[in-house]
Structures are given as C-alpha cells and as structure tokens.
C-alpha cells in the first residue's frame, strides 16, 4: 500500500514535470519541469529496488544533463522576441495528442504482454551492476565510452566560432 501511494506520488511528479516541460513558453520553465520529471524518475528507480540506477539518474540526468541545459539556457539568454512565437501552440498540442494517442495505446497494450510480476527480491546494487557490466557487457560499455568521447569532440567542434561562416540555416 505504501509502495502504491509512493508510486502515484512519484508518477504524478514525473507526469506533471513532463507536461510542464512540453507546455511552457519559457525554456527555463521547461527545464524546471524536466528537472522535476527526472527527479521523479530517480524516485521510481528507487521504488523498483534499483539503488544504483536511482543514484546514477540523480547524478547524470539531474546533476549533469538538466543543470547543463539550464546553464545553456541562461548562457543563450534568449529574449522574448527571440523565442519562437507559437500562436497555435495548444491547437498543435491537441492535434498531435490525437495523432500520438493510438501509438500510446499500442505501446501500452504491447508492453502488457510482457511478464508483469515485480519480483523485487534482490536490490540491484553497484556490485551487481558492476559484475554484469564488466563480464557480459564489457564490449557495449567500451562502445558507449567511445560514444561519449566522440560526442565530446563533436560538441567542441560544433561550438567553435569559425563554423559561423557556414550557413546551416537560412
């Protein structure tokens, strides 16, 4: 019972944060919504007895990604006139919701065909994950490390000033 109420509270946070994020006009509000959603997700991970993931989520998503996003938003410091005018934002949102709705239903119904009993016997700790990561998952792990390196290099290259001369958009 406690778990269920905890789940609903966390789910409410997550959904509320995401909806705020999608709907807000100001990017910073969106970032706050995103932050709340990420925190809610971390809580859900903890609820799933997934200690390590919860920590990783807080550290990476919240601590790094969201903070970095906010930092960027504030660095860009876009004025209201520089933000896109979206006069029919809500019409777009409702229309696209209708488009996405069947996909949601389809995803949900298909996911429900998976085994649905939460065993919850074992807490997934750093040890368990580490064992798996460095035995069966070494190769993907290394690939991901290369991906991260590549992303870093790419970000630096994209951010360099001389690229300004090339006209990416009109």
């Amino acid at each position: 019972m406690l778990e269920l109420s905890l789940f609903f509270i966390l789910a409410l946070f997550t959904l509320g944060g995401s909806i705020t994020m999608v709907v807000s006009f100001q990017p910073l509000f969106s970032a706050f919504g995103f932050l709340i959603a990420m925190l809610g997700l971390a809580g859900l991970f903890a609820l799933l007895n997934n200690q390590f993931l919860a920590l990783a989520q807080i550290m990476v998503s919240v601590g790094a990604v969201v903070i970095l996003s906010m930092l960027t938003i504030m660095t860009v410091n876009a004025q209201v006139q520089n933000l896109p005018k979206e006069p029919h934002k809500f019409i777009w949102l409702i229309l696209s919701s209708f488009l996405v709705a069947p996909i949601t239903v389809l995803i949900y119904t298909q996911l429900n065909t998976l085994p649905a009993t939460l065993k919850g016997a074992e807490t997934i700790t750093a040890k368990v994950i580490g064992n798996a990561l460095f035995t069966d998952w070494v190769f993907p792990f290394e690939i991901v490390s290369i991906l991260l390196l590549t992303a870093m290099v790419g970000a630096i290259v994209i951010g360099r000033k001389h690229l300004l001369d090339t006209k990416a958009c009109s």
Partner: peptide, 15 residues
C-alpha cells in the same frame, strides 16, 4: 507519448 507530442508540436529548440 508526452515526449513525442513535445517533439512534433513545439518549435522551441530547447523544448
């Protein structure tokens, strides 16, 4: 789905 809706209906690059 909320993420999908955000991608196709919003024009703000941050969102």
């Amino acid at each position: 789905s909320i993420g999908l809706v955000g991608v196709i209906s919003r024009r703000n690059l941050f969102v």
